Amino acid sequence: MFTFSSIKNVTWRIVKRFLSRVLPVVIGVVVAVFFLLRLVPGDPARIILGDQATDASVIALREQLGLDQPVWVQFSHFVTQLFTHFDTGESLVYGESTRTLILERAPLSLGIVAIAVMLTLAIAVPLSVAAASHQDGPVDHMVRVIPAVGMGMPTFWVGLLLIIVFAVNLKWLPVGGIGDGPLQPFLSLVLPGVAVAIAAIPPLVRSLRSELLDVTHADFVTTLRAAHIPERTIQFRHVLRNAAVPTLNLFGVNVAFMIGGTLVVEKVFAINGVGSLLFNAISSRDFPVVQGVALYCAFFVVLITIIVDLCSAAIDPRLRLGSS
């Protein structure tokens, strides 16, 4: 039951996390993305117009895009645009708002991340419980070996392997792109989601298995067994709950890697999501789009971190008490 005190504690916890995590990350990303991009050799105006363009046309385009202004002036315009319109400006190539470009492609990228998250939890938790319940047995050894193999496979290589097996040979799922049928958009995101999940499952299995074993040998578990509490109740209500917090924090970190893996996998599966937009913007030196993608990804990662922190507090009351 929610009380005024609990709501107050949760609100204060969110405010503290916002001030301690969101603002420093946002400021760091804003500064880093703006200045690091300008250290890379290449003239965006020259790239847009092509090598055959005259110097006069390049100079005119630089003036039109504001690239001829001092860096500090460009940075002040960039920050003003960001905090007044939640945008990093118009794309140098597409001539559209970066916010519009990103939001148009975000559903595809978020769909891949959502599928990867669900698959990761659905596979990692049962494998970890099975391994911890059969410590040093054949099941445990098998569960420990398979993740070790999965950690050594690059995401793009896994994606190509999935295409060959499930799309080309078995013809169960689309090879790439986004179909037009009723279920085609979802089916087109399944293989990319699996490729991203395979890279995220191994560290979670190892972490959760280790935590489960530590909690299983704790004194309070021995006391519960002496009280003849059903083993299933002990495992799922007490052991798994106490072991979940460290793994949940690791999972929050892995979501950030899932986002990065999604951006790469989109190119493998020819999906026109945020990843494809980012790589095209990098190749054409489209500063506003690269900055926008980086900032939106940073916001999303920080949001996931706060959600994970709140979930950890909901699972472990000691964290709620410590934050009040």
Rank of each mutant, 00 (worst) to 15 (best):
Q235T: 14
M151H: 01
V301N: 01
P41V: 07
A116G: 13
A122W: 10
L208G: 07
V129Q: 01
G179S: 02
L204G: 04
S312Q: 15
K16S: 07
V253H: 05
L119D: 09
V10W: 04
F86S: 10
S57F: 03
S128Q: 00
I112E: 03
L189D: 02
V205P: 06
T222K: 14
I315K: 08
I198R: 02
T222L: 14
L161E: 12
L65T: 01
D51C: 02
L49H: 06
L19W: 02
Q81W: 04
A116R: 09
V15Q: 06
G66R: 04
T247P: 06
N280V: 05
Y296L: 15
G159L: 03
I102D: 00
L263W: 01
I112D: 03
A45P: 05
I201R: 03
L82P: 10
L213R: 14
V73Y: 10
R285S: 10
P174N: 07
A281Y: 07
V22T: 10
E211M: 11
V25W: 00
S57V: 03
L39K: 01
V25R: 05
L224E: 10
V289F: 06
H217L: 12
F86K: 01
G137Y: 01
F251K: 05
I282A: 14
V15H: 03
L65E: 09
G275H: 11
Q81K: 12
V245H: 09
K267V: 12
I14C: 07
V139E: 07
N169V: 11
E90S: 14
L119E: 02
T84E: 04
S91Y: 11
A132D: 00
N9S: 13
R38I: 03
